[in-house]
Design a binder for these strands. Structure first.
Lengths: 190, 190
DNA sequence: GAAGATTGAGTGTTCAATCTTT
DNA sequence: AAAGATTGAACACTCAATCTTC
């Protein structure tokens, strides 16, 4: 088997893994610890594996375009905002990273001159992030670059599968929001 | 509510994000740059968001059990092997990380006394990783711990969705294997 | 020269502690 | 006391270079 769809150079009939290694894991777990829901273990492994590989591929392809993925996402988040401004906390939730990560990103974007940080006069604990004119231009430039990176990553999948994955993962993310509403960061024991 | 199994209408009412923020991103992209396949952009965002959150939740829950996820996965990979041994390269492909990451993990596991690294006498470039008796015990102990972490992460999803995600992601991983066969690491220009 | 593993530098995240404002 | 943002340390990964072996 081994999906010999196209002519691969190293056509040495790969003896190992074929990703259904993970199915083996499931079978093993199910035998050793029947209490456990092995399906969710498999899903964890697949989700993390796919994400790691995606991140690696993306980083490679973006680096030749002289941009980084997080930068693209941040600028676009701001560019999409009605008035080109968002609060820092919003950006945390959007990108699903901790506030520390966002601060880090904001520092770098500010150094590059693409955003400005101002204290919210209404609630001085919050920070309002605004796209500078230069940042706005840069965002537009970035948008116009057609990066095939992610498209080619998923190109092995039929369109219907891509759509189904989208729907299912959206459901997952929505369900997570309901679950882990309370925290996100900050967990101090006084 | 929100159960938008299909097309997802404008259904405002949600004050913030609700993860269908990502659908907004799609609409925005599609308007700004129609050349781009916005569906794959959405899928990238969702895949990475879900993975990041999963990783964070898992780390938290595992830390109270005094173990790390990568450790569990590595020990189980070895435990599952017919003779309790695997080559380092195999472990790279299994975990979908670069060889540098595997070396790093192996160093730490060796320090803890749970594995041994030996040169393969048949091909002295390769390293054979073996579970020590202590490591084997530790793996068994770990297996017996019932960690609900991942199960609860996906608990908001109906069983059928979990299964569908599993098959779709498996297809993705298989397709990726076919694609990126040549490299994985090592990319030198002489 | 190519393949497998290792090293060290660089990157980007989480986490816990801290500061300010409410 | 709680919420939002920042800081710095710890962590774990990728990447490019290197070494050894084939």
């Amino acid at each position: 088997v081994t999906r010999a769809t196209d002519s691969m150079p190293g056509a040495e009939t790969f003896p190992v893994h074929t990703s259904d290694e993970i199915d083996d894991v499931v079978r093993f777990w199910r035998r050793e610890n029947p209490d456990l829901d092995a399906n969710t273990t498999a899903l964890r492994l697949r989700l993390l594996s796919a994400a790691r590989q995606l991140e690696r591929v993306l980083r490679r392809e973006m680096s030749v375009l002289e941009m980084e993925m997080w930068e693209l996402d941040m600028l676009l988040s701001l560019r999409r905002a009605p008035d080109g401004a968002r609060r820092a906390g919003e950006l945390c939730r959007l990108a699903r990273v901790t506030s520390g990560a966002i601060t880090n990103r904001l520092v770098r974007l500010e150094e590059r001159g693409w955003i400005r940080r101002d204290v919210d006069p209404a609630d001085r604990r919050q920070v309002i992030v605004t796209l500078t004119p230069a940042g706005s231009q840069h965002a537009d430039r970035i948008i116009s670059i057609k990066s095939d990176a992610e498209t080619s990553f998923f190109s092995g999948l039929p369109r219907s599968t891509v759509e189904r994955l989208n729907t299912d993962l959206r459901d997952l993310l929505i369900s997570l929001e309901a679950q882990s509403d309370p925290d996100q960061d900050a967990r101090a024991a006084p």
